[in-house]
Amino acid sequence: MNKDNNSPWQQIDYTLLFLIFLLLCISSIAIYSAQFSLPVHLREINFVLRQVMWYMIGAVAILATMILDFDRFKQISWYLYGFGIFLLLLLRFSPEYIGSYELAPIRNGAKSWFVLPGLGSIQPSEFMKIFLIISLSHIIIVHNEKYAVRELREDFILLGKILLTSLLPIAIVMEQPDLGTAMVLSAIVASLILVSGIRWRILFGAASTFSLAIFVLVQIYFRFPKFFEDYILDSYQLARFYGWLQPYEYAGSYGYHLITSLKAIGSGQLQGKGFNNGTVYFPEAHTDFIFTVIGEEYGFIGASIVVSVFFMVIYRVIHISIESHDPFGSFLCAGVIGMLTFQVFQNIGMTIGLLPITGIPLPFVSYGGSSLLTYMIAIGLVLNVASRTRKYMFD
């Protein structure tokens, strides 16, 4: 028996929306404090106002995403995937004045943005995350419907489809070079593979192969460092790992980021220094290192509250995924879970020295138009699934 006959718009998950509103408040307060530690030429920019503006644009994106039944995204998944690849290739072969080599020092030489005069910059790889989630979910659902009773061969075919579809965007993003975004795309792929129904012995074999590949790469690095730097990771990407493993020896580059981040978070202690009372200067405070601002000014208690809000967001998406009666909706939610979980873990981990610095922003909190819009569209997909899930009295 259906508990209600409400329309999808009457079944919006307000709990999830409230959590996103909390992140908006946290983001605005943290960015306001971070502005005072930015270079002089950036302090004149009202990043808080811009962030709120992007949240408003994101709210419109959520509404637009919810207009179309999420099941319809299967019909346009390959168009979205093709459009994403087109944008990545267009950026790859565009002139340097269109790409953002010289836009700001935080770009680190990565050609990952379109520079739009008067509007700022757009990062195509951010939107590719959403397109990849939709495309892979479509692949999995079509394969599972075609092979209701699967043998080992069919599982390998599905794994091959997923990896082949994912390889092209990840390779293009790696070439930009943007290791952080490539890692997020890989996390999306891994999360969808885990819930795809592929046998665990195949997944264990794939994990073992991946571990062996990492071991081989390490051996190549120690034995043929020149080859490794020329064909696998750029020097600035390697510098991120050096700065993580030996921050004081590489204090002139990425070690400086980690040292100042640890100093700021450590000085916050239990309760923090209070709103706008941060005293440790560190670069990129309003973007990649926004969690450092929170840790310094609000201490362990404030940082724990932020982590708890993220935990509740991810828990809510998991709940919606489990409740969905449509496998495609569950796969969409699983991809969003993989994306958000990895990005939160990676960003917070890099600010406390647990993981290497990769330039991944903290979802919903770090300043950034393309990234925030991507997260809002992802939440729109989840809300779409939740609003069209019928609940029954005897479920």
Rank of each mutant, 00 (worst) to 15 (best):
M1S: 11
K3T: 12
N6L: 15
I12C: 00
L17A: 12
L24D: 03
S37A: 10
R43Y: 05
E44H: 11
M56W: 08
A64I: 14
R72L: 13
R72K: 15
F73P: 02
F83D: 02
F93I: 15
E96Q: 14
I106H: 15
R107M: 10
L119D: 05
I122P: 01
Q123L: 06
M128K: 08
K129I: 11
S135G: 10
H138N: 15
E145L: 12
L158T: 01
E175T: 10
Q176K: 09
A182V: 02
I188F: 09
I193R: 08
L194V: 15
S211Q: 04
L217M: 12
L217V: 05
V218P: 00
F222K: 13
P225Y: 10
E229D: 07
G243N: 05
Q271I: 13
K273N: 11
F282A: 07
A285F: 08
F291R: 01
T292K: 07
I301L: 15
G302H: 10
Y315G: 10
S324F: 03
S324G: 06
H325G: 05
P327T: 01
G329M: 02
S330E: 07
I337D: 02
V344M: 08
L354H: 01
I357R: 02
S366Q: 06
V385L: 03
S387Y: 08
S387V: 05
D395E: 11
